[in-house]
C-alpha cells in the first residue's frame, strides 16, 4: 500500500468520506423521530469528524468545505442569499474540520468542531432573521435556541459514536 502517494490516498479518502456523510445524513433512517416531525439524523457528522481526527486540520477543513458544496447541490437545500448560503453550507461544515486540531483528545475535537458549526449556523440565523423577522423581536435569541438545541443532540450522538470508534482503534486503519 505504501506505493500509493499519500496525497492521492488522502484525496480519495476525503472524497469517499464526503459521499459517506451524505449517506448517513440523508439515506439511513434517522436515529430518533421526534413527535413534531423533526428527527435526529444518523450521526451525519461522524465521518467528517473522523476524517479530521485521522488526517489533521487542513484536510478536515477542505473535506468539510467540499461536503458543504455537495450538500448545497443536492435536493432539499435552502438558499436565500449568498451570505446565508456560504455560512450554512461550506463554512458550517468546514468548521467540523476544526476537530483536527485536537487529535490527541478526540472528544474535545468533536466539541470544538460542532461548536464551530453552531457558530456558523448561529451567524446565518441572525443574518436571516434580521431580514425577515419583524422589528422589536430578538433574532439572536431565536437563532441560538433553534440551532443550539438541535446541534446539542447531534453533539451527544456524535460524541458517543466517536468515542466508541476511537476505542476500537478505527482511526488508524489502513493509514
Amino acid at each position: 500500500m505504501s506505493k500509493i502517494a499519500s496525497d492521492t490516498k488522502m484525496l480519495a479518502e476525503g472524497t469517499v468520506i464526503i459521499a459517506l456523510t451524505v449517506i448517513l445524513k440523508d439515506v439511513l433512517p434517522p436515529i430518533y423521530q421526534l413527535p413534531q416531525g423533526g428527527s435526529v439524523s444518523a450521526a451525519g457528522m461522524v465521518p467528517l469528524l473522523w476524517f479530521a481526527l485521522r488526517r489533521g486540520l487542513r484536510p478536515g477543513l477542505e473535506a468539510g468545505t467540499v461536503y458543504g458544496l455537495v450538500h448545497m447541490a443536492l435536493p432539499g437545500s435552502y438558499i436565500v442569499d449568498p451570505i446565508q448560503a456560504l455560512l450554512d453550507y461550506p463554512i458550517a461544515f468546514a468548521a467540523l474540520g476544526l476537530a483536527g486540531m485536537f487529535r490527541k483528545y478526540p472528544l474535545a475535537g468533536v466539541g470544538v468542531g460542532i461548536f464551530g458549526r453552531f457558530l456558523a449556523h448561529f451567524a446565518s440565523g441572525v443574518w436571516f432573521f434580521s431580514q425577515y423577522a419583524p422589528a422589536g423581536t430578538h433574532p439572536v435569541v431565536y437563532s441560538a435556541i433553534y440551532n443550539g438545541s438541535f446541534l446539542f443532540v447531534e453533539f451527544i450522538v456524535s460524541a458517543i459514536l466517536i468515542y466508541i470508534v476511537v476505542k476500537r482503534r478505527l482511526l488508524e486503519i489502513y493509514l
Binding site: 500500500m1 469517499v16 468520506i17 459517506l20 448517513l24 439511513l28 450522538v157 489502513y174
Partner: peptide, 29 residues
C-alpha cells in the same frame, strides 16, 4: 441504546468506505 445500535452499521460502513478509497487511489495513480 439507539445510538449504540448504529455501531454495527457505522463501523462496517467506514471500513468498506476506506477500502473503496484505496481502490480509488490506486485507480487514480
Amino acid at each position: 441504546k439507539r445510538v449504540r445500535n448504529y455501531i454495527p452499521i457505522l463501523i462496517p460502513l467506514i471500513v468498506s468506505a476506506i477500502r473503496r478509497s484505496l481502490e480509488l487511489a490506486e485507480a487514480m495513480e
